[in-house]
């Protein structure tokens, strides 16, 4: 395996005195789609946010492309070209679609804005129609598309996606997963995907990790994990 793009080593994270991550180890190699699955409250979002420095890891190390980012402030981690479409989408509700995209492009060279805009509008044509509409007035699916697009506007090297399928109609979920697959296959974009929709996520991903109570309990290729009895029992039955 090539040197990992993102490497998480022995990371503990806390909310006050409550420990949410316990000595987490995981890697994402360049060009991979890696997924993290686990029950509600397992600590998946916490791991993603810890990569971005909110909260910061109390112990352990997070390395991105050879640089230790464990103690960097959030906005400087973003500067390393890590883009995050977080849980709950977090669209700026009183900004237009265009303004949300402009916020996403904050760290990118201005000259590449038009190209990025063209790319996301061709991935999600509905956003082009909504360009002057306020983020808060979009449907859930459109907001998720905007959240992903906003993240893509910075031309990231690593895309963090936290439950992009949450609360969306199956057809929209398929569309979004298709876009992730395409971005990875055509542009070589590295993706770290958190999902509760384990079946789809494991089918899409090259590799996966399973998290239980803040600990990584299983890892392997998507196919391997899909075949594991523990995974089937806990995350797949009825979960399709």
């Amino acid at each position: 395996m090539t040197a990992p793009l993102l490497s998480v080593r022995g990371v503990d994270a806390f909310y006050g005195n409550i420990q949410a991550l316990r000595s987490v180890n995981m890697d994402v190699a360049p060009g991979e789609i890696v997924t993290l699955i686990g029950a509600n409250g397992a600590g998946k979002t916490t791991l993603m946010m810890t990569v971005c420095g909110k909260p910061q890891a109390r112990h352990g190390q997070i390395v991105f492309d050879g640089t230790d980012i464990t103690k960097l402030p959030t906005h400087e981690i973003a500067r390393m070209s890590i883009a995050h479409a977080p849980e709950g989408r977090r669209i700026f509700p009183r900004m237009t679609v265009m303004e949300n995209l402009q916020m996403g492009a904050l760290l990118a060279p201005e000259a590449k804005f038009a190209e990025a805009q063209e790319m996301v509008f061709s991935l999600f044509p509905v956003l082009a129609k909504r360009r002057n509409q306020r983020g808060g007035t979009l449907s859930g699916g459109e907001q998720q598309m905007l959240a992903i697009s906003r993240a893509l506007m910075s031309w990231p090297r690593l895309l963090l996606l936290d439950e992009p399928s949450l609360g969306l109609a199956p057809l929209i979920v398929q569309q979004i997963f298709q876009v992730i697959r395409e971005l990875n296959a055509k542009q070589g974009l590295t993706v770290f995907l958190v999902e509760q929709n384990a079946y789809h996520a494991l089918k899409l991903a090259h590799r996966g990790y399973v998290m239980v109570n803040g600990k990584i309990t299983l890892s392997g290729t998507g196919r391997e994990l899909l075949a594991r009895d523990e995974v089937k029992a806990a995350y797949l039955e009825g979960g399709r």
Binding site: C52, K54, P73, T74, H75, A78, R79, H84, P86, R90, F92, P93, R94, M95, E99, Q102, M103, G104, L106, L107, R150, S154
Partner: peptide, 22 residues
Amino acid sequence: SLGRQQRACEQDSTMAALLGVN
């Protein structure tokens, strides 16, 4: 851009930081 960053911080400062806003 400064004005957008100000509005972004006002609406969701964590998200603004995730996008690189100081």
